[in-house]
Design a protein around this nucleic acid. Structure first.
Length: 381
DNA sequence: GCGATTTGACCTGA
DNA sequence: TCAGGTCAAATCGC
C-alpha cells in the first residue's frame, strides 16, 4: 500500500511539475501532450495497482496496456508483425518495469503475451493487447446479435446538390479508401461506471455511429480532430466485441498527418540520441516512429531529457523542470518524497483551475473526446 | 456562441 | 438490394 501511495504522490508531483512548466510549453502542444501523458500514466498506474489491491477483475484497466495501444506505438508493433524486420521482438518498457516479448512472428489475430515484471500477474496478462491484423479491412461479419433501437427524432431531409459520385462531398472520394488500416483489440478503460475506449494519444471527433448487422453494439466512427486544420485524414472505427463487451475493436484507417503541422515540433537533438542516456523505451520508439509525421508516444521520455537539458543549459536548475524525474523511470519513486521540491512556479493563470483539475481530466481520459483540445486549443491562422 | 455529439438520411460498393 | 460509411441538422454542454 505504501508503494501505491508513493505512486499517487509521484503522480501528484508530476502534475505540479507540469503546472509549473506550463508557461514554457504552452506553445508546444507536442511537448504538452507528452507531459500530460506522463501525468496521466502515473495516475493510471496508481489506479491499476489500487484496483489490484481491491481485488479488481482481470478486465480492469491496465496502464501498461494503455501505453502501448497508442497508434504511434502500434507503428512499432507493426514491426513485430513483420517477420523480416523483427522476427522475434522484445521491447523493454523499462520505465514501467515491464518487458513485452513476442516470440516468433505474430500472426493476425494472435494475442501477444505481456510478461510483466511482477506488475501483470496471471490472467491479467492475457488479452492485454491483440494485434488483430494489419492492412485488414472490415470485420468480416463475425459479430452477431441485435442492435438497440435509436431514439425518435423529427424527420429530416437532406437537400444535397450532389449529382453523383465524387461531385460534391470529398467524403465520396475517400469512401472505403484502400489506405492502410490496422485493427487492434483492447480492453475498455473503466472509470467509475463508465467504460471508455482507451486514449491513444490522439484526439478524435466522432462523426457517426452505425448499427452493424449482427452485432450487439453499434460502431462509432471518428476522424482526427485536426482534420480541418492540418488536413489529417486519420480515422478510426470503434466497436465493442460481441463476445467480450469489455473489449473494443478499433480499426485505424490512414496515418496522422496532423503532426506535420505548420508549426513543426522544434526539438533540439530529438534525433539519434545516445541510447545510454535513455531507457529501453528508445528501442521502442526508434522502430516505426521514424516517420516524420508520427510523433511517438514514448517520445515523452526523450522530451523529458531534452527538457531537462534545456533548463540546465539555461541555468534554471533551481526551478526543476517538470518531467525531470521521469528520466529515472520506475525508480523515480525513490525521490518522490515531499522533500526538497522547489515551490511551483506560479503563472498568471492561477485561479483558472488547478493542475489538479488538469490531472483529473487526464486521469479520466481514455475516451475519444478531445481532452487535449480542452486543455490546449489548436488554432492556426 | 461555439464546438462536440447524436442520429436519421443519404450514398456507394459489393 | 443491402450493409457499411458519411453527411449534416438538431441537440447538447460548456
Amino acid at each position: 500500500m505504501d508503494e501505491i501511495l508513493n505512486q499517487v504522490l509521484q503522480a501528484c508531483r508530476l502534475a505540479r511539475e507540469l503546472e509549473s512548466s506550463l508557461p514554457h510549453i504552452a506553445n508546444n502542444p507536442n511537448v504538452l501532450l507528452a507531459s500530460c501523458e506522463q501525468v496521466s500514466h502515473a495516475f493510471n498506474k496508481a489506479v491499476y495497482d489500487l484496483r489490484g489491491c481491491l481485488g479488481g477483475s482481470s478486465s480492469s484497466f491496465d496502464p501498461t496496456v494503455q501505453l502501448i495501444i497508442g497508434e504511434r506505438i502500434m507503428e512499432d508493433w507493426s514491426h513485430l508483425h513483420d517477420p523480416d524486420s523483427m522476427p522475434t521482438g522484445q521491447m523493454a518498457f523499462s520505465q514501467f518495469g515491464l518487458d513485452i516479448q513476442a516470440t516468433g512472428a505474430i500472426a493476425a489475430g494472435e494475442f501477444i503475451d505481456v510478461g510483466g515484471g511482477g506488475r501483470l500477474a496471471g490472467g491479467e496478462q492475457e488479452h492485454a493487447v491483440a494485434v488483430v491484423s494489419e492492412a485488414e479491412t472490415g470485420l468480416g461479419g463475425r459479430l452477431g446479435g441485435p442492435v438497440g433501437s435509436m431514439g425518435q427524432r423529427p424527420s429530416r431531409r437532406r437537400y444535397r446538390m450532389t449529382v453523383g459520385f465524387g461531385t460534391k462531398s470529398g467524403q465520396l472520394m475517400s469512401r472505403r479508401d484502400s489506405g492502410e488500416t490496422r485493427t487492434v483489440r483492447i480492453p475498455a478503460l473503466r472509470t467509475g461506471n463508465l467504460e471508455l475506449p482507451p486514449d491513444d494519444g490522439y484526439t478524435w471527433r466522432k462523426y457517426g455511429q452505425k448499427a452493424i448487422l449482427g452485432s450487439k453494439f453499434p460502431r462509432s466512427y471518428f476522424r482526427c480532430t485536426h482534420r480541418n486544420f492540418f488536413g489529417c485524414k486519420a480515422k478510426r472505427k470503434v466497436q465493442k466485441l460481441d463476445a467480450d463487451p469489455n473489449t473494443y475493436e478499433i480499426t485505424y484507417c490512414g496515418n496522422h498527418t496532423c503532426q506535420a503541422s505548420p508549426t513543426p515540433l522544434i526539438l533540439p537533438s530529438m534525433t539519434p540520441t545516445t541510447n545510454e542516456n535513455m531507457t529501453g523505451n528508445v528501442a521502442i520508439m526508434t522502430g516505426g516512429a521514424s516517420q516524420p509525421s508520427a510523433f511517438p508516444l514514448s517520445a515523452s521520455i526523450e522530451l523529458s531529457s531534452w527538457f531537462l537539458k534545456e533548463h540546465e543549459s539555461e541555468g534554471k536548475a533551481s526551478s526543476r523542470p517538470f518531467l525531470s524525474s521521469l528520466e529515472v523511470g520506475e525508480s523515480s519513486r525513490a525521490h518522490a518524497g515531499p522533500s526538497e521540491q522547489s515551490p511551483p512556479v506560479r503563472t498568471g493563470r492561477e485561479g483558472e483551475g488547478s493542475v489538479a483539475d488538469l490531472a483529473d481530466a487526464m486521469f479520466n481520459s481514455g475516451s475519444s473526446s478531445n481532452s487535449m483540445d480542452t486543455i490546449f486549443t489548436f488554432k492556426t491562422d
